[in-house]
Simulated assay, not measured.
Amino acid sequence: MAQKYNDIILEVRGKIGIIKLNRPKSLNAFGGTLIMDVIAGLRELNEHPDTVFTVLTGEGRFFSSGADVKAEAGREPEEFKNDAEKKVSFMSRFSYAIELLRSVIDHKKVFVLALNGPGVGGGAAWFQGVADIVLAAEGAWLQVPFNALGLVPENGSAIAFAQSMGVHRANDFLMFGRKCTVEELEQWGMVNRIFPAQGFHQSVTKFLEEQLDVNDGKSMMETKRLQNAPRRTERMMAVFDAMEALAERFVEGAPAQRFRDKKALLEGEIAVSNSFYFITNDSSYSQIERSI
């Protein structure tokens, strides 16, 4: 099954389906065909006759570094007749992300997010609030630069995080770009369990297999359905509202100016603040602690 996709590895181990983000050189940034591959993988596993769990995880040392900042910084500006045309253009760009979140929200299997390493931006916010179970590797962390880039929390994460960890903690994380360790997030109810970083993927599989030895798969899936069904409309509206607000930010030009400021530093490397990263010629990232 892995050969069907360019930027993910999809495999089935008994009753466990695994989607592994597979762009480790770019720290699993959302470039290439990654988003479309994940959507297709979720659809395939949603209809798989045998699986109970669907695990989303990453290859390499990061879960995901989020948007491909280097590609965004190099995007040529477009001309629009008016603000309405500009907004519609940006809304159409977000269709992949909207379908990705719908695929998670409507997924029939128990959706397990397995954070093998740090998550940044979309990699820290898109899946965490809508996953059924969140497992993490020791030492992993999450951080978002949305407001630093003139953006807004994406894909309904403002509501999802507030529901999971409380409004004040969510504001600290989403507004101020606070870097949160998975150990903190476990205390706040955002992470279920933490496993050693060494052998993390094996630990996740072993843990889920142990749950299958004790619990009936269909019952776990029904538990998920009963819990999530009343929240489906609210979650989808949150995704749409976030995309609409994000499009308005692009209409106002705030993100474009922020990206232009970063592009001025992009010549082999780009210095990025807080949760921004040095992007080298091979698109790899390394974290820097630096104020904007």
Rank of each mutant, 00 (worst) to 15 (best):
A2T: 06
Y5H: 08
V12R: 03
G14N: 10
I18N: 01
K20R: 14
N28E: 09
A29H: 04
F30K: 05
G31S: 13
G31I: 00
L34G: 01
G41K: 00
R43W: 07
L45F: 05
E47T: 02
D50I: 00
T51W: 01
F53G: 03
T54Y: 04
G60L: 06
R61Q: 14
K70D: 01
A71Y: 07
E72T: 11
E85H: 07
M91S: 13
I98K: 12
I105S: 05
K108D: 11
L113N: 01
L115I: 09
N116A: 09
N116W: 02
G119Q: 11
G119K: 04
L135F: 09
A136P: 01
G139H: 04
A140Q: 05
A140H: 02
L142P: 03
A148Q: 15
A148W: 08
L151E: 01
I159G: 06
F161K: 03
A162S: 15
V167D: 13
R169Q: 11
A170H: 02
D172F: 08
F176K: 10
T181M: 13
E184L: 11
E184D: 15
M190C: 09
F195R: 01
G199T: 12
V204D: 01
T205W: 05
L208E: 05
D213Q: 14
V214G: 11
G217F: 02
T223D: 00
P230R: 07
A238Y: 00
A238M: 14
D241S: 10
E248A: 14
A256G: 14
A256V: 15
R258N: 09
K262R: 12
K263G: 04
K263W: 08
L266Q: 05
I270Y: 07
I270L: 15
A271G: 14
S284H: 12
I292Q: 14
I292S: 15
